[in-house]
């Protein structure tokens, strides 16, 4: 690992200032992805600003929902009673991600900031527009079994690897951001972006900004499920995951939010399928039709064509498990 300057920030403002003074610096929280990338030479910040002392570890109820600090630890949020009782979908998504050790290190903000696990991004001898803009995409014609079926571009077909983010997208969360120009809030679904012709940008965070927390609004979702399909039973990134949250009135769907992981450069909300399901009965047939609608813009790249078949089945299955009709 190339050495760097290490400093500890004691306040959000100090952290933002420290980054502004060194644009090739980075914030470090849990470090589970950043240190991995630094060891492999994918990134080499000249300054690390340790933000672990910042007072952003809260998981607290607010009048309209719950406020989770950017530095709240994944395992602690996952097992928090407020989260388990009111946002079980988020707990399930956390539990499906990484390993117990990594969940004890990873923070909520860091989870959002993690980079793709595309092997061409990690292999510094291969072309990758995300790692080195303009160098090409190795995955497009290469081994792309893990890659995107929605919203990809000819510059990048990588997927975002997070489970937590898929649940937060389904739960209509909001991201709190602080930066040199002040504070702002954006919908969670606008935080990550599609690759388009700038795959080097994973998200819409502006220069010098820091995530301070995530707000999840109250909801009446009484049926939830996070389905994760992967190559082994545990501790693997998703081939496909489906977060399903439904508000049921007996057997009629009053409201439903669905998001998928492992299929796009960002958590993939399925608004058309959601619209179709509102007011309908929870049946396998309706769920399958919704899944069909969700797949309209899907596209395979060869090795990942199996996802085109697997995804609609996963959507249907997750909705069925959530509503208990399996």
């Amino acid at each position: 690992m190339i050495n760097f300057e290490y400093i500890r920030a004691s306040s959000v403002k100090a952290a933002v200032d420290a980054l502004a003074k060194n644009p090739t610096g980075k914030f470090i929280a849990g470090g589970t992805n950043l240190i991995d990338l630094m060891k492999r030479g994918v990134t080499a910040p000249t300054r690390l600003i340790d933000i672990n002392d910042l007072p952003l570890k809260q998981v607290e109820e607010t009048t309209d929902g719950i406020n989770i600090g950017a530095l709240a630890i994944n395992s602690e949020v996952s097992e928090n009673e407020l989260i388990k009782n009111n946002f079980p979908l988020l707990s399930m998504a956390f539990a499906a991600g990484a390993s117990a050790q990594l969940r004890n290190m990873a923070t909520v903000g860091g989870n959002m900031m993690q980079r793709t696990r595309c092997s061409y991004f990690y292999d510094t001898t291969m072309p990758c527009n995300k790692r080195q803009p303009g160098s090409g995409c190795g995955a497009l014609q290469g081994h792309n079994r893990m890659h995107a079926i929605f919203g990809a571009s000819d510059k990048c077909i990588a997927v975002h690897p997070s489970d937590m983010c898929v649940a937060l997208a389904a739960l209509n969360a909001t991201v709190s951001i602080s930066g040199p120009k002040g504070n702002r809030k954006i919908p969670f679904t606008d935080f990550h972006r599609l690759p388009e012709d700038k795959p080097e940008l994973d998200n819409t965070l502006q220069k010098g900004e820091i995530i301070t927390g995530v707000l999840i609004p109250k909801n009446n979702f009484n049926k939830n499920h996070y389905l994760k399909i992967r190559d082994r039973a545990s501790y693997a990134f998703a081939l496909i995951s489906v977060a399903a949250a439904l508000e049921m009135d007996v057997d009629t769907i009053k409201k439903v939010n669905i998001a998928m992981g492992g299929v796009a450069h960002k958590p993939w909300r399925m608004t058309e399928a959601e619209k179709f399901l509102v007011g309908k009965k929870a049946t396998r047939e309706n769920f399958s039709k919704a899944a069909e609608l969700a797949m309209k813009s899907a596209k395979g790249y060869g090795h990942n064509n199996f996802k085109l078949k697997m995804a609609p089945i996963a959507i249907t299955e997750s909705l069925m498990i959530a509503t208990g009709i399996v």
Binding site: Y6, I28, G30, G31, T32, I35, D36, K39, R40, L48, D50, N52, S75, S99, A100, Q101, L102, N104, M105
Partner: peptide, 27 residues
């Protein structure tokens, strides 16, 4: 592995298990 994939480096920090290969000592 030295990349947080195998768990051979697991230690407890303040009672919690972590991968020591992905934690900077100074942290």
């Amino acid at each position: 592995c030295d990349y947080g994939q195998c768990g051979a480096c697991t230690v407890h920090v303040n009672g919690k298990r972590i991968n020591s290969c992905l934690s900077l000592a100074v942290m």
